[in-house]
């Protein structure tokens, strides 16, 4: 465990808590893409299946349980909670996220560490996580105004991936030059997807104006 990875995990945890807070406190999920949340739930389930088979550390197991339960809780709220589900922008959240699932799965069948069920699920979860934010970014572009909690949510999510890239660089130089192409390439793609959002977020912060994304 190094500081970059710990910071990455904490900002990731924070992004989920900010989202849960927003939904629970305001009893509203307007501006939140349910599709992105469903993709994240699939990512966590597909990646953390080793939760019951391989014990790595208490921290590792606790965080896996937290991520799976929080993403499931968010999806449940957006689908079942009587007050929250009414505020879901159904007609705005139109990204065909099934395509993302299918593409990630095909990629995982081709590019994986070993052609085993667990490795393919792991690679699938890595590829899917890289693109899972797309429905959310499209929804933000559509709804133009970004309420600050949703903005912070995306910001923390991007920061988590940026910290992980620093973590991979650190591990590469300190733990023997093991090259791990799958998470590296997927992680770079994922962080690049946030780059434009970061740019507009920074502009809105600098000019102290409400975050407006160009149409």
């Amino acid at each position: 465990m190094n500081a970059f990875r710990f910071l990455g995990d904490m900002t990731h945890l924070f992004s989920v808590l900010v989202l849960l807070l927003k939904i629970y406190a305001t009893k509203s999920c307007s501006g939140v893409s349910r599709k992105t949340q469903e993709l994240y739930m699939v990512v966590f389930v597909a990646r953390y299946m080793d939760l019951f088979t391989d014990y790595i550390s208490l921290y590792n197991s606790v965080m896996k349980v937290v991520f799976i339960t929080s993403s499931a809780a968010i999806v449940w709220c957006m689908r079942r909670h009587p007050q929250v589900r009414r505020t879901y922008d159904r007609d705005q959240d139109t990204f065909r996220h099934v395509v993302l699932v299918a593409a990630s799965f095909v990629l995982a069948l081709i590019f994986n560490e070993r052609f085993t069920f667990r490795e393919i699920c792991w690679a699938f979860s890595i590829y899917l996580e890289a693109v899972a934010i797309l429905p959310q970014l499209v929804l933000l572009q559509r709804s133009r105004n970004v309420d600050n909690l949703t903005g912070q949510y995306v910001l923390f999510l991007g920061a988590y991936r940026a910290f992980y890239i620093l973590n991979w660089i650190y591990r590469y130089f300190t733990e023997g030059h093991t090259s791990r192409w799958i998470p590296w390439i997927a992680g770079l793609v994922q962080t690049a997807l946030y780059a434009d959002f970061f740019y507009y977020y920074f502009l809105s912060w600098k000019n102290n104006v409400k975050l407006e994304l160009p149409a």
């Binding site: 995990d9 990731h12 790595i56 550390s57 896996k64 490795e119 791990r180």
Partner: peptide, 10 residues
């Protein structure tokens, strides 16, 4: 193997 240590990350 290389892939194993990748699994210690979240």
């Amino acid at each position: 193997a290389a892939s194993d240590n990748a699994k210690d990350e979240l």
